[in-house]
Design a protein around this nucleic acid. Structure first.
Lengths: 215, 215
DNA sequence: AGTTGTGAACTCGTTCACAGCA
DNA sequence: TGCTGTGAACGAGTTCACAACT
């Protein structure tokens, strides 16, 4: 949101403007920002560029982060080409796979190495972020290898319950779980459409949220 | 987790066994399950099949959910082929795109229709779940069309802040945000490695969680 | 007059701990 | 003896509300 204000050459924003644009509560936004320090000017708001800078520094986005993607299947290749993985300081440095058909090929100009080279590649490129886009059965092995090679945090797309060594952070993106939540909402909507009496009474804001994921 | 117990032909599980396997607190698990009714037997635990059935019913996973994927680019095609989208009651019924090169092709046996046919396809196939895998610029338009066609909930992979009509639930999967969180953790780990004094004192469990996403 | 930063209240999910049942 | 279901305590994040500042 801050970037979009910056693009539109807005000089200052108030917490209310920012919060409205992001869909959050202004007080929460102010408290969150206060953890980074005091950047706002009472009566005026926040300097967009100044705040953008502070946030970038706080989130350590001002340096380049090379990424390794394990699994050069459909998903792995799609991720390697996706905008989210190639902009804003992120760069897919390498892919690894075990399939001889894939090893040695290029995806978006990025080489696909054999799984056995994982450690060497991670070391050479100083990779700290790993992405698991393999079948569930290989995921645990990959995590072990990544951790051993020095990767610090892992984004896992495989539908598996992973255990990683202490200090390694694993974030799971579970597509099946996402769909299950969608289905739950859709089913509830149909139920209500058929009989409005089924509507939960305590629907405070937009929709009864399931805790966990983003908005 | 319940499915894995079922596969291993386990007849009953206690809340502790289940919670350990899932990595959650047993008391929380018991309270959550209690919302579905009383299935457990004191002294014995829960009947695996019985509980699996109750959960399936509660989450409305016992019927088939056809899905429409908007955007037949790398990501859209990868999703159409992914396990999470083709198992457990989910079925990709159609893809839509605007690119003439893609329209008319097949992805994993699924036809790619033109965007203009979205409404017709959704109606014909009685689709209630939509997935947005388009560039950010088209996302808002797609959401409008999906909502108008009768889709009830939407999974959005485009990095855009979407506003949907009331009653339509939009869940965002923001790959860039995921990477930013990974980078944050990795940076903190490096900081601590360089100077252990930087370690936050109040690290209760695994790693100081950022609220929001799954475990 | 307008907006920040924050003490204090509040909300809501989590966890403990135990009565009660198999 | 073992385990469930839940009252009660707890705790973390959220939100209110306002003093302080421009």
């Amino acid at each position: 949101v801050l970037r979009s204000f910056s693009t539109r050459r807005v000089a200052t924003v108030s917490s209310v403007e920012l919060a409205d644009a992001a869909g959050v509560n202004p007080a929460t936004l102010r408290r969150d920002l206060s953890h980074l320090g005091s950047f706002g000017t009472p009566g005026t708001g926040y300097g967009v560029e100044e705040l953008l800078d502070a946030v970038h520094r706080a989130l350590t986005l001002s340096r380049e982060w090379p990424i390794l993607i394990a699994g050069a299947g459909d998903l792995g290749r799609a991720l390697a080409r996706s905008r989210g993985f190639t902009t804003g300081g992120f760069r897919v440095a390498a892919l690894v796979d075990v399939d001889p058909e894939r090893v040695g090929t290029l995806v978006n100009g990025i080489a696909v190495h054999h799984l056995d080279e994982l450690d060497a590649v991670v070391t050479r490129e100083e990779i700290r972020l790993g992405v698991v886009a393999t079948p569930a059965t290989s995921a645990a092995d990959i995590v072990t290898r990544l951790a051993a090679a020095g990767v610090r945090s892992i984004l896992n797309f495989a539908p598996a319950l992973l255990t990683a060594p202490e200090q390694i952070v694993v974030r799971n993106v579970d597509l099946a779980a996402e769909l299950q939540m969608l289905a739950f909402y859709a089913a509830r909507a149909e139920l209500e459409a058929a009989d409005p009496a089924n509507a939960p009474a305590n629907r405070t804001r937009a929709a009864g949220r399931i805790p966990g994921r983003p908005r």
